[in-house]
Design a protein around this nucleic acid. Structure first.
Lengths: 344, 344
DNA sequence: CCTCCATGGGACTAAAAAAGTCCTATATGT
DNA sequence: ACATATAGGACTTTTTTAGTCCCATGGAGG
C-alpha cells in the first residue's frame, strides 16, 4: 500500500503544513546530537544557527520522548533515538521528495545512480559531513574481495574517509591507492594521506605515491623506475573502484599554483571542472592534464565503479561536465547542489 | 510497504506529537463543514465547542489550502476538501489506532465486525450523527436484491436513517418493515416512522405495523387477523437484515411507561439491556419480552445480517449482553463507547 | 591541587503567535 | 421591511515561544 503512504504525506502537507518545518528541525537536532555527542545546547545552537532557548526547548522534548539523554556532560542520543533517526530517514526523503529528485537527476545526467545527502542547515561543514557519510556508506556497500580502490585528495574525500566506519575484520585483499600524484595541497587533504586513512578504516593495505606535480617529463620517467613508485603505479593500473572529488577548474588551478599564463590558457579553452588530474570543459572534453602519474581517462571510462562525491552549489557545472565520461558514475551530492544542477 | 506507513506514524507521534492534535482539529472542522454547509464560523464554533477565533483561523487556513470556500453565506467544502476528507479517513483510523480497537473488540465480543465512528468533539449530537453515518454506510454496502430489512425505533436508528444517502434508482424488490410493534415513543423515533423514512431514502417499499404495546393476548390475536397487520407480520417473518438500536433496560422501561412493579421485577431479574422488544441480563439471557408482535429471538439468532447501532458510554453493558446472541452481529458504535467496553 | 571551560538548569524578560471580543456591512429568507 | 446569520476588520488579552543572563557543577589540563 505504497499509495497509502503517498496519500498520508500529501494530506499532511496540506492539512498540517507547519508539521514539516517542525519535523525537519527536530530531525536535524537529533541528527546533529547523534554525530557530536556529547554536545551542549550552546554548541548545538551555534552549529545549527538556532537560538539557545530553541535548542533547549527542543532538546527537552527529545529528552521527554527518551530520544536523547542529558547529563552534565551534554546531550547524548539514546538507542531509541538512533532507531528513530534510522527509521525516519526514508520518511525524510519522501517528504523532501528527494527520492524523486535522485531518480530524475540520474536520468537527466545519464549516470547510474545519484545519492543526495540531506541536512536541514546552512552549515557547510555539516552538509559536507553528511555527504561524506552517504558516500562512505555507498562505498562500503560495494566493496568486496580483491578490489583496488583509487581515491583522490580534497576536503570532500577527507570527509568521506572520516565518515567511514572503522572495520574490525581484516578486509580480504583490498588495496587502497591514491588515484594520482600531487603534493600541492594541505597534507590533511592530500591523496596520500587520505588513501592511508581509508586503508586504516577499512583495515586493509595501501600504497602511496610520493610525487610532486608538474615535474619535467625526463625526471618523471626516471622516477618511475624507483621500486616504490613503480609498485604504486602498477596498483593504479589495477584500480577497479575510483572515488574522487571534483573541483571548479578556476579554483583548482589556483590551489595548484599554476602560472598565470597557464591559468589564462585553461580559461580560454573553456575549462570548468577538474577531477583526478584532468581539466574538462562544459561538454566533458579534456582540455588539459596535470603532468603527473595517475589514472588515465581511458582507464576511467572503462571502470565499473566510479564514485564522484561533491558538495556545494558552485560545483554544478563541474558535475555536469564530468557526468558525460562514464555512464557507470555514481554521484553523491548534497541537496542544494542537486537542486542547482536541475535548475539551470 | 505497510510497515513504512506504520513507521511513519510511530515516528510522527514521537517526534511531532502536537501534530496529532492539530490534525484532528482540522479534520474535525473540515468534516463538520462538509456535513453542515453552508455554515458560519459562529455556528461552527459553538457546534464544536471551540473559540470563534480558532474556528476563524483554521477556516482561513483551510481556505488557503482550497479545501473550503467561503462566501457571505458561510463556508462550503470544495471538491478538493472532500477528497482530502476521504483520503484522510484511513489515516485518521490509524493515528487513533481505531483499526486495532475495532479488531480487538470484535475478538473480545466474538462478533463479526465492529465499526467505530470518530468525531473529535464532545458534542453528543455530532457523535450520534457520525455513528449513524457509519451505520448507514455499512447497511448500504450489504443491501442487495430481494431483501427484507427490519428496523427498530429510537434516536440512534433515526440518526442512521437520516444519514443514509438518498438513492435515486429504484431498488429491486427491497422491503422495509419495523422489527416490532410499539407506539410508546415520540413519533419522530418510532419504528414505523423510521421504517418509512428508510424506505424513502432507499427508494423501496415498506410495510407498517400500527400496534400499541402491552395489549392483551386476546386483543393481539384478533388484531393479527386484520389484513394490513397480517401482511406486515408476514413481512417481519421474512426479515433477513435487522438494524436495531439498543437501550439500557432501566431507561427503556421508563420510557415505555411500564408499571412500577413491572420495573422492579425487571431489575430483580437483572435486566440490563433492551433491544427489539426483549430485555436481557448481563449474560445475554432473556428476562422479559414486550408483549407485542415482532421479530423473535429464534429468528434473530439465525439471521445473517444483524446490525446493532449504539452511541454513548452508558450503553456498554447493554452491548456486551446483546453481543452474545448472534455471532454474525455487526456493531456500529462511537469511540468513547468502544473504549468503555474494552476498559471494564 | 587549582584553574578553566563547557555543561545543564533556573529565572526573568521580550517578542510573537494565538485566542477572545466586539463591531459593521451585507445578503438571505420570512 | 425586518430578523437573522454571515464574513471580515480591529482591538485586547492570553498563551506560547524565544532571548538573555546567571550560577553551581564536574571534568580536563596544567
Amino acid at each position: 500500500m505504497e499509495s497509502l503512504l503517498q496519500d498520508a504525506l500529501r494530506i499532511q502537507k496540506i492539512v498540517v503544513p507547519e508539521m514539516m518545518t517542525v519535523f525537519f528541525r527536530r530531525y536535524e537536532i537529533l541528527n546533529t546530537i547523534a554525530s557530536h555527542e556529547p554536545i551542549g545546547r550552546r554548541s548545538l545552537s551555534v552549529l545549527l544557527g538556532i537560538g539557545e532557548k530553541t535548542a533547549r526547548n527542543e532538546a527537552a522534548l527529545l529528552q521527554d520522548k527518551l530520544l536523547i539523554h542529558i547529563d552534565n556532560q551534554g546531550m547524548y542520543i539514546t538507542h531509541e533515538g538512533r532507531k528513530v533517526l534510522e527509521d525516519a530517514e526514508p520518511w525524510v526523503y519522501k517528504l523532501k521528495a528527494l527520492d524523486d529528485t535522485q531518480k530524475e537527476l540520474a536520468a537527466v545526467l545519464s549516470v547510474k545512480k545519484v545519492i543526495i545527502s540531506f541536512r536541514e542547515t546552512n552549515n557547510k561543514m555539516l552538509i559536507l559531513q553528511e555527504t561524506g557519510k552517504k558516500a562512505a556508506e555507498y562505498l562500503k556497500s560495494i566493496i568486496c574481495e580483491d578490489m583496488t580502490i583509487g581515491i583522490t585528495g580534497g576536503s570532500t574525500m577527507a570527509a568521506t574517509v572520516k565518515e567511514m566506519p572503522k572495520s574490525n575484520h581484516k578486509n580480504k585483499n583490498i588495496t587502497i591507492v591514491p588515484a594520482r600524484g600531487g603534493l600541492g595541497e594541505d597534507v590533511e587533504i592530500q591523496a596520500n594521506n587520505i588513501a592511508a586513512s581509508l586503508a586504516e578504516k577499512l583495515n586493509c593495505s595501501y600504497k602511496l605515491l610520493h610525487l610532486a606535480e608538474n615535474l619535467s617529463k625526463e625526471l618523471l620517467e626516471s622516477l618511475k623506475e624507483y621500486p616504490e613508485i613503480r609498485e604504486t603505479i602498477e596498483g593504479i593500473q589495477k584500480i577497479n573502484v575510483l572515488v574522487f572529488g571534483i573541483g571548479r577548474a578556476d579554483v583548482m588551478s589556483q590551489r595548484r599554483h599554476l602560472k598565470e599564463n597557464h591559468r589564462i590558457l585553461l580559461k580560454e579553452k573553456g575549462a570548468v571542472a577538474e577531477a583526478f588530474g584532468y581539466y574538462f570543459d562544459k561538454k566533458g572534453k579534456i582540455v588539459d592534464v596535470v603532468n603527473t602519474v595517475g589514472i588515465t581517462l581511458d582507464q576511467y571510462s572503462g571502470l565499473e565503479h566510479v564514485i564522484c562525491v561533491a558538495s556545494g552549489v558552485e560545483k554544478a557545472t563541474a558535475i555536469k561536465a564530468v557526468s558525460k565520461l562514464n555512464p557507470n558514475l555514481v554521484l553523491v551530492i548534497d541537496e542544494g547542489l542537486a537542486k542547482s544542477i536541475l535548475e539551470d
